[in-house]
């Protein structure tokens, strides 16, 4: 494990313990406070499930049917014109829709091309520097009952495209 990984692994436990110790030091009834907060958290989670359901249904059907691969095949000429490696295309299609599916795609690319190959390296950077836009929007807004998303969807999709292209360009500098 690298220093970074150790740091990252130790961070959460340290933070949690620090909060609890600081709380009791301040004379807070930490047990009661924790339970109150957790009860509230369950309410949030319960409100979330219908939105998760909606996203999973649509993305699941799109993926299981092979429509996702079909879209990747359609995009192929345009992306290879832009000299984007063909192996990265599924990544571009899947990433905004589903985090777990894109991790699956990345694992597959790493296996096929090797993690230290140019394609494997670029794919890793793409996965790390992009977000699951569709999921973030529906879940975050859904949890608090927002119906009007305003410009966030368009901005999110534009950012996905920019992040995808930017990741390829930047990753190439490090090859």
């Amino acid at each position: 494990m690298s220093g970074f990984a150790v740091f990252s692994a130790a961070l959460l436990p340290l933070f949690i313990i620090m909060v609890l110790i600081y709380g009791s030091f301040k004379g807070i009834k930490i047990y009661e406070a924790f339970v109150t907060g957790a009860r509230h958290g369950f309410g949030v989670a319960a409100r979330l499930v219908p939105f998760l359901l909606a996203v999973f249904l649509a993305v699941g059907l799109f993926r299981d049917s092979g429509a996702m691969n079909l879209l990747a095949a359609i995009l192929k000429p345009a992306l290879s014109f832009l000299r984007i490696p063909v192996d990265l295309i599924p990544m571009a299609v899947v990433r905004p829709l589903s985090g777990s599916a894109s991790l699956g795609v990345l694992a597959d690319i790493l296996k096929q091309n090797g993690p230290d190959s140019p394609t494997g390296f670029i794919a890793s950077v793409i996965q790390g520097s992009t977000e699951t836009t569709f999921y973030v929007l529906t879940v975050y807004f859904g949890a608090v009952g927002i119906k009007e998303y305003r410009h966030t969807l368009h901005a999110g999709l534009a950012t996905d495209v920019a992040a995808f292209i930017g990741s390829i360009l930047i990753a190439r500098l490090f090859l």
Partner: peptide, 22 residues
């Protein structure tokens, strides 16, 4: 997935409630 997330959200809400009160 919702149930898995529920545990995490509830846990963090609990911790954050302590942080907030302190």
């Amino acid at each position: 997935f919702g149930i898995k997330l529920a545990g995490l959200i509830a846990f963090w809400s609990g911790i954050m409630k302590v942080a907030e009160e302190a």
